[in-house]
Design a protein around this nucleic acid. Structure first.
Lengths: 344, 344
DNA sequence: CTGAAAGCGCTTACAG
DNA sequence: CTGAAAGCGCTTACAG
């Protein structure tokens, strides 16, 4: 358990060559003669040598890690995102330094400070709600490429900054969902759930309003009901949809969790989504396909987003000169039974 | 974007002291005089110094990271586990090196090899299904403490090995669920779902058989139906429960996903869980509390398990001499409506 | 109380 | 084709 670790020196001594030669063999250089190479290889096996990448990185002034900081790993959406990012980083020979912040901007500062000391080649950050751009800037400095995912911190000078931003097409997505309901004949459509002060909720509400506006002046935005973005809170607030007559016949929900909660709330009133009331979600979480009824929603494929974020950050690591980009991600409307009900 | 990184040397030169003094200030030593200390602190701020922990670790022959390798980050159970582990590691000043294997033993070998080169102080491993203990041993060597979570790799010499093992109380949990159904008067109880060749499924089946045996010789194990541990596959196989008369009146399911799938399958036959048929799960995933009906299940609190795993591995890092332990984790039966139906 | 020197495990010109 | 030497950014006895 406690023997000293095997180093290049041990190998060199073990087979009577210099450290430099062993290093060349390790790195697959064609310089060493074939038999030297073989001799060294055998010795490496024999002594159970493990490469010390930290030492190599120090000498070469490179880094083989990327920090991945997420606001909430217990949310399947971000877990998938993390899995996708880790997958792509691993495939490129990078190791993922994980940090989770539990939506606390303070913890996020601590976590990032600690990760910075490990000299990541880049940083993928899905910020905690309420993150402050200046505070982040302070810690992250200007040496390391940063990609911000999903949410905008406050007070970011995007033009002056070198941060990439990868956003979901929130506005466009909500617009698609709303248009879909309009096409089914609905005229009283609510926007249901989410925190109105989050950037994603504001954008989705805007897309909802866009679609209604395009559909003609006669149609006004319906009620906008705020809830925590969770199933339970959505279920608790669903009565609010029916507070005033005439009640809406459909709701564009902030996300899938909220939509599933609303379907629960509808059931309590004896209404069934897809038969008596139309519901759409956002995210296409795994449950969406198997709920009763299955949920019409917008798919953004978080795992693919994770891969995309990793690919992008590695590009910037390799080409430090290039400009930062603000990217938006495709959304796809997936039509399922929850929005089947049509209005003549 | 591309200025050289600030080092101790820059700080030392910047305020006219030696590198050693700066290092002492950084590490909070009481040796330097108060005014020297102040001078150095100011210079650190001014130049935006970032500590290079890798260099320090190299010199001190320590490590400030722990590798966390999980089989499936998109499963909420393991995502929670990872979040808990990362939380505890972070609090102890360690950084988490993440690796995910997507249940592929081959990928697991690659991932672990790469992580080993980053010199982790310890390894928390939730093995991919079908992991081979000898192959793992090969890569992990004997220098680094390892904690295996949740599943046993094949061919592990636990007595000879220095690996910790943290298991769920699979047997005990399934026994609790089965006993609960027996107490409600059920006499024909099936075990439903899971792969019979996974260690956790075998253990849960054993606990199920235990409870039936205790209940008296008259009660024999009912059908054992194999499925993938997913909602969809479980739904697809639920008809098998009713293939032979007399059909069971209750099922102990391998896990919550399977139980939710079975409830879907029951609905297809016009049966409702909790009214016409009793169902129990395992894991207490978030959906269990809000499904229709809510699911009776066994809670193991994966986030707390993650914290526990981290705490344990750090203990072994600090006390390398101590023996490995095989720990089992408490389970708690949570009774909800899905098992409400009683048999007179 | 502060500085010069050696060394962690590696890589990389540069001689030979 | 191979080896001796310098150096990445730090820490730590050891002098002074």
């Amino acid at each position: 358990m406690n023997t000293r670790r095997v180093t290049l020196n041990d190998i060199a001594r073990g087979c009577g060559v210099s450290r430099a030669t062993v290093s060349l063999v390790l790195r697959g250089s064609p310089l060493p003669a074939a038999d030297t190479r073989a001799k060294v290889q055998t010795e490496l096996k024999k002594q159970g040598y493990v490469y010390n990448r930290a030492a190599a990185n120090l000498r070469q002034r490179r880094s083989s890690s990327v920090a991945l900081v997420v606001n909430d790993l217990s949310n399947p959406f971000f877990a998938e995102f993390a899995a996708g990012a880790d997958e792509a980083l691993g495939a490129a020979g990078y190791v993922t330094l994980l940090g989770s912040t539990s939506e606390s901007p303070e913890r996020q500062q601590t976590v990032l400070t600690s990760l910075m000391e490990h000299d990541p080649a880049g940083i993928i950050l899905s910020p905690a709600e309420g993150s402050d751009g200046e505070a982040l800037q302070q810690i992250l400095g200007t040496h390391v490429p940063v990609l911000v995912f999903n949410r905008e911190p406050t007070r970011v000078q995007w033009t002056a900054s070198h941060w990439d931003y990868l956003a979901l097409a929130n506005r466009r997505g909500a617009e698609l969902a709303t248009r879909h309901l309009l096409e089914r004949g609905h005229r009283r459509i609510a926007f249901f759930g989410g925190h109105a002060d989050s950037s994603s909720c504001r954008e989705r509400r805007r897309g909802y309003a866009d679609a209604l506006a395009v559909a003609g002046l006669a149609i006004e935005p319906g009620p906008m009901i705020e809830t925590a973005p969770t199933r339970l809170d959505a279920a608790a607030h669903s009565a609010a949809l029916f507070a005033h007559a005439p009640a809406p016949t459909a709701a564009v929900c902030y996300n899938d969790a909220v939509a599933l909660g609303l379907m629960l709330g509808l059931a309590t009133r004896g209404l069934r989504a897809g038969r008596d009331f139309a519901v759409t979600g956002f995210d296409d979480i795994p449950e969406a396909a198997v709920s009763t009824p299955p949920l019409t929603t917008l798919a953004t494929d978080p795992r693919a987003r994770g891969r995309q974020a990793a690919t992008r950050i590695l590009e910037r690591v390799r080409h430090p000169g290039t400009d930062a980009v603000r990217g938006s991600v495709p959304v796809r409307l997936i039509i399922r039974a929850s929005s089947e009900v049509t209005i003549a």
